[in-house]
Design a protein around this nucleic acid. Structure first.
Lengths: 347, 347
DNA sequence: ACTACTATCGTAAACGTTTACGGAAGCTAA
DNA sequence: TTAGCTTCCGTAAACGTTTACGATAGTAGT
């Protein structure tokens, strides 16, 4: 005898009563409920996940899908951990658990997702690392699984999303650099078809066009969104016949490798070239300090959680504003790395 | 009609036959099996997780417990992502799925674990961020849940573990620095009761004693295992009446903040003070390059997976070497940051 | 032709919950 | 007293699988 039966026998009541007592149903005597709660605490009883999920058709688990492998996301160390912490503060209120669904680099994300969903693993999903074309969206929409994405995609099935405002960052960065007299501005993007690369580069192109400038194709640098990728970008910049006088970095970690690569050639950010990047715990301690765009990751997590729950019938009433799509603003953080202006001291 | 019943009706066989065919049981006709497999593929059928888990008493899920929040582990995202990738290559062979169980910084890890285990969420667990005293170990042992830990603890219940060889790193670092003439050597440790702090500091103490030196208490720096923590350590070092001539960093990320903090005071690692730390994707691009200790994270993940499976009856036969405890060696990576020797050029 | 065996498959119970339903007891109002 | 209501609780079905068991048919041996 196990689980709820054990508890019921121990209390000399039926399993139905135990279940009702634990689930806060109305038709149970206050005294009985108290006894049940106490006994459950004492015996360390927690309802079996599988039995409950099987009966209720809901697991109480929300999955955050992400990919393993070292150089995939291009986020800094603590990016996801901070976001998760925000997500959980919301989920905890609804007795929901967040788990990270880890798609191996060996497996196709689409296949992985299909498996997870078919198994009925989670009641809702948050997708990250969205691609330009992302079949996961179609699949989830067809199966009517509640989900949102951190990041957009061309594959639009009407689901809510939250994405960082890379357009805003692109616009502000270009405007700022052009105002300082820069004409040859390099931009970076991930090597793969991650969506953010497209929106970022395209907006940079537009912003330059507004100033009568063209984004030159050989100044668009693709790289792994990692420190090593940043190092390669530095080498590529140094190898240019006509070097750019400024560079805008869309990923968090590449600034580290870029700094090193430039400095090895005696080119110092802020003195010999202007650099604008993304804020991160590391970037904060770069020297010279990185002019960058920052965001509150915990708040982002909270917003992700609320947006997802608003799409789920069971929880929607707590979030009357409804599901939405939202560009998350990036805040400008002044630094020393963009101090260089080509007007004053060409290199 | 759903799930296996649908598939069975579609094929005009019984659900028992479908189940047997999909699970590779012997008593099913080869032709029938082929039809079932094809139909399952076509209809995208995957057994429901809850039903299967309920019946089999096993979920096919292995949980890796970790804590969310930004400054907890002192590892980067990339640390765990790389380890996970190794773990999954092994698990994939057994059709096991790895999920990260994310304990919020708001919740007590012990309570969280109890909930997860009681719900029967995972068949096995890998614990990280082990504490000096860690009640999770007792609990899992009492419940006879298969688990291992990445990291040791004083709370020893006989479970297998893999831990990084911080003793070896301490020994080698101290020996190296003393040989270079250093006498005042600072060491770092996490601010909390993470186990690694104890073993690391104690071994440093022993290693110094072997050279007739004492580890001075005011040269043991506690900090968050983060970049910000490293910055604080730099400030503290600079504030010493009699500055240490060398410092050994046990966590990965603190070198970044330390470098910045020192450089702000004109103290350059490698020229004015010797620094030895841990290798990481960032550390690789620090300038001057960090003399450090490194490891192959993917291999560590593979070893973790194999060690866990060896403790699980269902899978143990594939891993005849049995469960074990293992200190994972850290490889010395030469760099420039420990070039300074107090004999030649005191600062 | 009868037995014994094998190959294949259907049936039904079980896993641990939740919940619809109904029943027993107590109370109120006529 | 009795009908009707309320409060509380027990019973049993259902969720989607897996698997022990038994049934059937075919095959081979005597």
């Amino acid at each position: 005898m196990k689980g709820i039966h054990l508890l019921a026998k121990h209390l000399n009541v039926s399993i139905g009563t135990v279940s009702r007592a634990l689930n806060g149903k109305p038709d149970v005597n206050a005294e009985t409920r108290k006894r049940v709660l106490e006994a459950a605490e004492e015996l360390g009883y927690v309802p079996n996940q599988s039995g409950r999920a099987l009966r209720k058709g809901a697991t109480g688990v929300i999955g955050f899908m992400m990919q393993t492998g070292s150089e995939i996301t291009g986020h800094g160390d603590t990016f996801f951990m901070s976001v998760f912490d925000g997500v959980q503060t919301v989920f905890a209120r609804h007795k929901l658990d967040l788990v990270a669904l880890l798609c191996s680099s060996q497996e196709d994300p689409y296949d992985y997702l299909r498996r997870i969903v078919a198994r009925g693993f989670a009641d809702g999903l948050i997708l990250s690392s969205t691609r330009r074309i992302d079949h996961r969206f179609d699949f989830l929409a067809k199966r009517k699984i509640p989900f949102i994405s951190l990041g957009r995609s061309l594959t639009d099935v009407g689901q809510p999303w939250i994405d960082l405002d890379f357009e805003g960052m692109a616009q502000a960065s270009i405007d700022r650099l052009v105002a300082k007299g820069h004409r040859r501005i390099a931009v970076t993007r991930p090597h793969d078809d991650t969506n953010l690369g497209y929106v970022f580069v395209e907006r940079c192109r537009e912003a330059l066009a507004n100033h009568g400038l063209a984004l030159e194709e050989d100044l668009i640098f693709r790289s792994m969104p990692s420190e090593a990728g940043g190092y390669q970008i530095a080498r590529a910049i140094l190898a240019c016949e006509e070097r750019p006088t400024a560079v805008v970095l869309v990923n968090e970690t590449i600034a580290i490798g870029l700094y090193r690569g430039l400095e090895e050639a005696g080119v110092k950010p802020g003195r010999d070239i202007a650099v604008i990047g993304r804020h991160s715990p590391h970037a904060r301690f770069l020297s010279p300090s990185l002019t960058s765009f920052s965001l509150n990751l915990r708040d982002l997590g909270i917003s992700l959680a609320e947006t997802l729950l608003a799409t789920m019938p069971l929880y929607a009433e707590s979030y009357p504003q409804g599901p939405s799509r939202r560009l998350w603003p990036l805040d400008f953080v002044p630094g020393e790395s963009d101090a260089f202006s080509p007007k004053q001291q060409p290199y």
